[in-house]
Design a protein around this nucleic acid. Structure first.
Length: 279
DNA sequence: CGCCCTGTTGGGGA
DNA sequence: ATCCCCAACAGGGC
């Protein structure tokens, strides 16, 4: 469910509610969530600590706790982070009681979500350095940066966009959206992109993510805010393809295929298929 | 009712 | 470097 705009939206809503609060009680009912630690170990490490800041890196929430203790939390496919959730909410595997009486619940039907404890600045830096590349909304993702990222890579451009070690936070839906905005076919070998295409793609990635943020992270159909309310839609490529409607730019049919192992949508009029197999 | 397929993610093994 | 499969579950098509 959550891609970068959704994660950032949740972070912005939750940060003022948790920063400065102490985690009074932590209950983890899922041994998968806290691997490699046992749930009891993670509970003990978190309990009683003050939240200095709630930040984000790629699609990770970073709970910055006192004494340089960090929790890198990922919601993966189906995780939701709820504030004062309905007690009947299903699939809640992690519950946190704050010192002001409010509660945090993490609901995650598929249980892919993770929470990793990182002790100290160095551990945090190493964790993200091994996994994440450039932050797409920090201003550094321009045409030349994109060109350096695609250079020498013969993998399809969509696979490169989804590689978190290159660009942090672009998921399946926003990758399709960015490629449509840039007029680039998802299967085009990355190294074939011209300087002009790299420029358009860097803009497409930034604008697609920003549009998601402007919509309050409401671009995915079952996205819910921290208060449990469902979000709405915006009139973008990704919305049209979900509805089975034609391309909003040219009116031609949107086609579906597999790229980088994921379901992929494109308009092959706006995004011409690659013809040259190798370069 | 049951079976099969799909999926917003990322890690590990081939 | 790249591809495939997997984690666990819900929902839709047939």
């Amino acid at each position: 469910m959550p891609e970068l705009p959704e994660v950032e939206t949740i972070r912005r809503q939750l940060a003022p509610l948790v920063e400065g609060r102490v985690l009074r009680e932590v209950r983890i009912d899922d041994s998968r969530w806290s691997r490699p630690l046992a749930p009891a170990e993670l509970q003990d490490a978190l309990t009683g600590r003050r939240v200095d800041r709630l930040s984000r890196r790629g699609k990770y929430f970073v709970w910055e706790l006192q004494d340089d203790v960090f929790l890198a939390q990922h919601l993966r496919m189906t995780g939701t982070l709820l504030y004062d959730a309905d007690p009947a909410t299903p699939h809640v595997h992690v519950r946190i009681a704050l010192d002001d009486g409010h509660r945090i619940s993490i609901s995650d039907p598929r249980r892919f979500g993770t929470g990793e404890l990182l002790l100290g600045e160095d551990a945090r830096a190493a964790f993200f350095a091994a996994r994440l590349g450039i932050e797409p909304l920090d201003g550094a993702l321009d045409g030349p940066a994109m060109r350096a990222i695609v250079r020498d890579r013969r993998a399809p451009i969509k696979a490169v966009l989804l590689d978190q070690r290159r660009i942090a936070g672009v998921g399946n839906i926003y990758a399709d959206e960015a490629l449509h905005r840039a007029g680039i076919h998802p299967l085009r070998p990355a190294r074939q992109l011209t300087a002009a295409q790299c420029e358009r793609l860097s803009t497409g990635v930034r604008e697609a993510l920003q549009a998601g943020l402007d919509a309050g992270g409401a671009t995915i159909d079952d996205f819910r805010h921290v208060d449990g309310v469902y979000g709405g839609f915006q009139n973008e490529f990704l919305v049209h393809r979900r509805r089975g409607e034609p391309c909003p730019a040219c009116g031609r049919e949107i086609v579906k295929f597999v790229a980088a192992g994921r379901g992929t949508y494109a308009c092959e009029t706006c995004q011409p298929k690659p013809r040259r197999p190798r370069t």
